[in-house]
Amino acid sequence: MEQKRNLKPKCELYHDHFENHKRYPIQKAQLIIADIPYNLGNNAYASNVSWYEGGEIANGESKLAGTQFFKTDKNFNIDNFFRFVKRLLKPEPKEIGKAPALIILCAFHQLAPLIEIAKEHGFKTFNHPLVFTKNYSAEVLKANMRIVGACEYGLVFYRDKLPKFNNGGKMVFNHMEFGRLEENKIHPTQKPLELLKKLITLFTDVGDVVIDPVAGSGSTLLASKILNRNSYGFEIKRNFYKEAIKNINEVEPTIVNGQKTVQTNIFDFL
């Protein structure tokens, strides 16, 4: 008879701000992934048809006109964020190829400032930023008059030693497909699950710890749970937190004869 046992990685999402992390029993991370606020302020929907009622200029402005994605989208404290990262990343190991990493997903205009701020906190970054390419764009207004953005960006940071890197003997380019979002999108800047799974697989092994200090939709924790990584996250907005918890709880990773499989009633992830 085929043997099956449930693998129960830790997967904890806290309805709190990451600056309150000392309240919680969190293990130090092999990888921290953060999709930080873009600091767009009240122009969050400026190039999107959502600015107008029903997506039509003739209908006048919608309730999203002149608004932020969320309250922290104009005053995110990046220095406090890096202090959190320094406390929660695992210490530098003696072995080569075991060091932890930080991935920040960000807007194009944040790339250069983040590199400089990271240096002040003792972090290096690779020469090439991550570029996630899409075959669609949210910048639909006046698309017949200008070039629109169809990329998202990220940076990989490390301290003194190069981080763990599971490339399987193949070159990994700094550009990769962003992919399509799942049907149950619950956050305005949500990232595709398959993209997060790829990044987590590159920089961690089964059983490692992944932390997302600004969890949003909880997709990082969901991807980590599927891949049998332990994960912790923080989300201060109650509606995002509740939906994220619902999605996370519906996924159960299992082991069948030593092979990782997933049982879920949401998506066929693998």
Score class of each variant (00 low, 15 high):
Asp205Trp: 06
His175Lys: 10
Glu95Phe: 01
Phe108Cys: 04
Gly54Phe: 03
Asn6Ser: 05
Ser47Lys: 13
Lys237Trp: 01
Leu222Glu: 07
Pro37Gln: 12
Lys246Gly: 02
Gln259His: 02
Lys86Glu: 12
Ile226Val: 13
Gly233Ala: 08
His121Phe: 15
Gln27Phe: 00
Asn265Gln: 04
Thr261Ile: 10
Phe269Trp: 14
Lys90Met: 11
Ile236Gln: 11
Leu40Ile: 07
Asn39Tyr: 03
Ala44Glu: 04
Glu56Arg: 14
Val85Ser: 05
Lys74Ala: 13
Pro163Arg: 14
Lys242Trp: 00
Phe203Cys: 09
Asn228Pro: 01
Asp73Lys: 08
Lys124Gln: 13
Phe132Pro: 04
Lys98Asn: 14
Lys22His: 12
Val256Pro: 00
Leu196Met: 13
Pro93Asn: 15
Ser62Asp: 04
Ala223Lys: 04
Asn167Val: 01
Gly54Ser: 11
Glu120Arg: 09
Tyr241Trp: 07
Ile36Tyr: 03
Ala244His: 03
Gln259Ala: 03
Asn239Tyr: 05
Phe173Pro: 00
Lys161Trp: 10
His187Gln: 07
Arg180Ala: 09
Ile266Thr: 12
His15Asp: 08
Asn174Ser: 15
Leu13Gly: 04
Asn230Cys: 06
Thr204Ala: 11
Ala46Arg: 09
Lys170Arg: 14
Leu193Gln: 05
Lys22Asp: 13
Lys191Pro: 02
Gly60Phe: 09
Asn257Met: 02
Val210Met: 03
Ala143Pro: 00
Tyr14Thr: 07
Phe81Thr: 10
Cys151Ile: 01
Ile78His: 08
Lys142Pro: 00
Lys191Met: 10
Asp212Asn: 09
Cys151Pro: 03
Glu194Asn: 12
Asn265Val: 03
Leu40Pro: 00
Pro192Met: 02
Lys170Cys: 01
His175Phe: 14
Asp160Val: 11
Gly168Leu: 02
Leu105Gly: 03
Gln68Met: 15
Phe132Val: 05
Gly55Phe: 10
Phe76Tyr: 15
Ile33Leu: 12
Lys185Val: 15
Arg83Tyr: 00
Val148Leu: 00
Ala112Trp: 07
Pro9Asn: 07
Thr133Gln: 06
Gly218Lys: 06
Lys185Thr: 13
Gly216Phe: 02
Ile255Ala: 06
Phe18Cys: 02
Asp208Cys: 07
Thr201Glu: 12
Ile200Phe: 03
Leu64Thr: 03
Val49Glu: 14
Pro100Gln: 11
Gln68Pro: 00
Ile57Trp: 12
Leu202Tyr: 12
Ala143Tyr: 02
Ser224Glu: 02
Ile26Gly: 00
Ala107Glu: 14
Gln3Trp: 00
Glu252Asn: 12
Ile32Glu: 05
His109Ile: 06
Gln263Glu: 12
Phe157Pro: 01
Tyr38His: 10
Leu227Gly: 08
Glu92Tyr: 06
Gly55Pro: 10
Asn249Phe: 07
Arg159Gly: 04
Gly41Lys: 06
Asn144Phe: 07
Gln30Arg: 14
Phe203Lys: 06
Pro213Phe: 01
Ile117Tyr: 04
